[in-house]
Design a protein around this nucleic acid. Structure first.
Length: 479
RNA sequence: UCCUCCUUAGCUCAGUUGGUUAGAGCAUCUGACUGUUAAUCAGAGGGUCGUUGGUUCAAGUCCAACAGGGGGAGCCA
């Protein structure tokens, strides 16, 4: 047997007249003669040609859609028109049969995304999900490359945490106590002192606070890990388990933070365009087909690749919350009372419809909003001198909404403690966090980026359940 | 959690005003085919119409509850 070569390599090399072994899964078998073979290295298939009567009829019967096979033969210039080269089979072995009567994935049926979600364990075998998850991989790799190239330290913040003060959302409890008969303390409450960690613990909702500890020593750190929110959110943009990227930088102010976030997003999108062009072109095609079903008014103005290049080549629009409120107040939908939530005064939280108006109608490009009212933002954000706003920044993307949320952090111990007390946060429990401000505090900033939302934007998919391998949502944790 | 729409063959969908034996394409099975490209051609099998209850002489069709899913909203990343 000759050396195994991946399909991607064979198609890329474009050489002929050499012997190879190829292993993969049958996508289709036509005319008892032509196998479209896919091995996951690329969305493109290798055409394997079987000479009539060269194989036993019983073996030919086993070449079914989904079966895994190993083929050895010669790569030759293709006699057909659909491809440059093809593999002329000399020997073929079926490694794993696939019973067509029972196989739930019949590609020629053009199964819907909703149906494929029900068979998520098999959906990687489709062109669409093959492309999505190769792009997801490339983006993840680019995340590490971007930060590594800039000297950031990849810090692994804990998955299990006792801290519940982030206020980022509802948490999943982690416990080994007997749920039927939990131990009780003197006042009749569950006695977590007897639990595994001798205290109440949860799955992390953010690595930011621990990230800040790292930034106060390494200067620049980032985290990239799973995050859990027990919110009962049923939308195409939320998951109970998702991956978040959270850089934290010492000696950064809000503007440095914005510059980094914008450069970061542009870098990873550019990296995917450069290294995953074919998959993105396939996804662009898919999106175009999908949009043909929609009425004209709902179709996107730019095709997927153009949209990504537009983001790369244009500055994100930067403005303050106060400026945004002025624009919204004077906007047509506000004056004509088309908004469900009308903008009347400063201080209101922006709803999705307002964010979408700013991004999709007014500026028609990514927008960075800064300096939000303190009342609608977290305790750790640096307070501005005006006494009412904080140095927060949100990056809003078309079709996605908030993709990044970040801020300069409050580095002043007294101001931070005062704010925590105002919000009734447990300052004693959070001693480790406050220690950063007590011992060698420094200006610092950071942001969080929801990885799946980035993948959504880059792949042009519209449901977040389609860009994570095994989505966890309320009422659903299959596979 | 709220609003809204959907649920008919393995998949994607038709199904008229409530009225005889619920249809199509693809998939599957059988056969044909030595250059196919979503292969093609001929034939066959395949249904508790999401579940439960109700209205009616009669329910895939009307009503209610529940379950699952889509879209939107809130919460957020």
């Amino acid at each position: 047997m000759s050396q195994r070569v991946k399909v991607k390599q064979i198609l890329l090399d474009d050489k002929t007249n050499y012997e190879v072994t190829v292993k993969g899964w049958v996508r289709s078998f036509r005319n008892n003669q032509f196998i479209a073979l896919n091995d996951g290295s690329t969305n493109n298939n290798l055409q394997v040609v079987i000479a009539q009567d060269s194989l036993d009829a019983a073996l030919v019967k086993r070449i079914t859609s989904g079966a895994s096979i190993s083929v050895t033969g010669e790569i030759i210039p293709s006699l057909g028109k659909g491809q440059k080269v093809e593999l002329k089979a000399q020997s073929l072995e079926v490694l794993g049969d696939c019973d067509p009567e029972k196989y739930p994935l019949q590609l020629k049926n053009r199964p819907s995304l909703e149906y494929l979600r029900e068979i998520a364990h098999l959906r990687f075998r489709t062109n669409t999900f093959g492309a999505i998850f190769r792009v997801r991989h490339t983006l993840a790799f680019a995340v590490h490359k971007f930060f590594n190239d800039r000297g950031f330290v990849y810090l692994h913040t804990p998955i299990i945490t006792a801290s519940d003060a982030e206020g980022a959302g509802e948490m999943f409890r982690v416990t080994t106590l007997d749920m039927k008969k939990p131990p009780l303390d003197e006042s009749g409450n569950i006695d977590y002192k007897q639990d595994f960690f001798a205290r109440s613990t949860n799955l992390t909702v953010s690595g930011q606070l621990e990230g800040e500890l790292g930034a106060m020593a390494f200067g620049d750190i980032y985290t990239f890990g799973p995050t859990f929110r027990a919110e009962n959110s049923n939308t195409a943009r939320h998951l109970a388990e998702f991956w978040m990227i959270e850089p934290e930088m010492a000696f950064y102010e809000l503007k440095d933070n914005m510059d980094l976030a914008e450069a970061f997003i542009k870098y990873v999108i550019g990296y995917a365009l450069e290294h995953n062009r074919e998959d993105l072109e396939f996804l662009a095609q898919r999106l175009e087909e999908e949009e043909k079903q929609k009425p004209q008014a709902e179709r996107s103005e730019l095709k997927l690749i153009d949209k990504l290049e537009f983001v790369l080549n244009n500055e994100f629009e930067r403005l303050t919350y106060t400026e945004a409120i002025d624009i919204l107040k004077n906007s047509k939908p506000n004056k004509n009372k088309k908004f469900n939530y009308l903008i009347e005064e400063w201080g209101a939280d922006l709803q999705s419809e307002h964010e979408r108006y700013l991004v999709e109608k007014h500026f028609k490009k990514p927008v960075i909003l800064t300096d939000y009212p303190a009342a609608i933002k977290s305790f750790y954000m640096k307070q501005n001198d005006d006494g009412k706003t904080v140095r927060a920044m949100d990056i809003l993307f078309p079709g996605i909404g908030e993709i990044v949320g970040g801020s300069q952090r409050e580095e002043n111990y007294d101001k931070l403690v005062a704010r925590m007390q105002e919000l009734h946060l447990p300052t004693e429990e959070m001693y480790w966090y406050l220690d950063t401000r007590r011992f060698g505090t420094a200006p610092h900033a950071g942001f969080g980026l929801g990885f799946e939302r980035l993948v959504l934007f880059v792949t042009g998919m519209t449901n977040i359940r389609d860009v994570i391998a095994f989505p966890r949502t309320p009422g659903s944790a299959d596979f």
